[in-house]
Amino acid sequence: MIVLLKLIQGIGAGALSISIGLLFVGIGRKITARIHRRYGPPFVQNFIDLFKLLSKKSISHGFTFDLGLIAGFSALLAAVVFLPMGQINIFPHNSSLIMILYLMTMAYLGMAMGVSSSGNPNATVGIARALTLTMGYEVPFAAVIFSVYLFAHTGSLTNIVAAQSGGFMNWNLVKLPFGFVAAEIALQGMLGEAPFDMAIAPAEIASGPMVEMGGKYLGFGMLQHSIGLFLETGIMVDLFLGGGSNVWIFVIKQFELYFLALLVNAIFPRFKIEDGVSFMWKVPLLLGIVQALIVVL
């Protein structure tokens, strides 16, 4: 009985993350348009696009292509289930941050396996850039997580959120400001927004990993992107903004982080991949180490 209940809750969490992620991207397109002084698409445009993509005929590039995309999608869905979202916390004794990060990397590896089996050199270059950038932002993010762990004396997201309860001044954003800035820069890389959008550069490598994906496959890519967006901003909210007393406050806090990322995205050009990684290993890593030293000493 309890297993069935958890199953239904898990499916609900997946559906919530997909719809919120799609809505975020839709609102984000409108905001970007306003920054460009355009009118912009309606904010439900992303749902229309998804419906159209899933109704198209699509071309597969073999079994590995299908398997890789499904593996990436399901790894992200599995990660969302362990994320505490306001009062929704499906596994309160099991929400280890390391496991969520592990599943997120699995998603990237699944996608790498899928798109590189399509045989298109642009896809291979794109996914190589994505994995190189992963190496870039995970090092500063690991430094930040190290200082959060040392500060909270726990590795569970549930306990980290609980330690920040009781008002604004208890948030890790106030307690660990350098760590927050470092994690914010790492988040920009995780979301793949400019200046770290070299993996999906449309003009140079024809949108990188998505180059051979059409129809339903691109629809799955959109779903994967929206879950990834929800998950990455959700981790940041749990780590630094004190979670949320209910799920709507949680979502609003997530949107604030995404809004900040959008503003940066709208005005910056792209880094080259080596410049992006070296930036990640200089500025955010230094900030993360400074924060860890402050916590230790």
């Binding site: 397109r29 024809a206 949108s207 051979e212 994906m213 059409g214």
Partner: peptide
């Protein structure tokens, strides 16, 4: 771009034939 902005009709440029309508 901003003068005529075709994205308000849901039309955006894509990079490859696989993604395009």
């Amino acid at each position: 771009t901003s003068r005529w902005d075709m994205e308000r009709f849901g039309i955006i440029p894509m990079a490859t034939p696989r993604q395009a309508d």
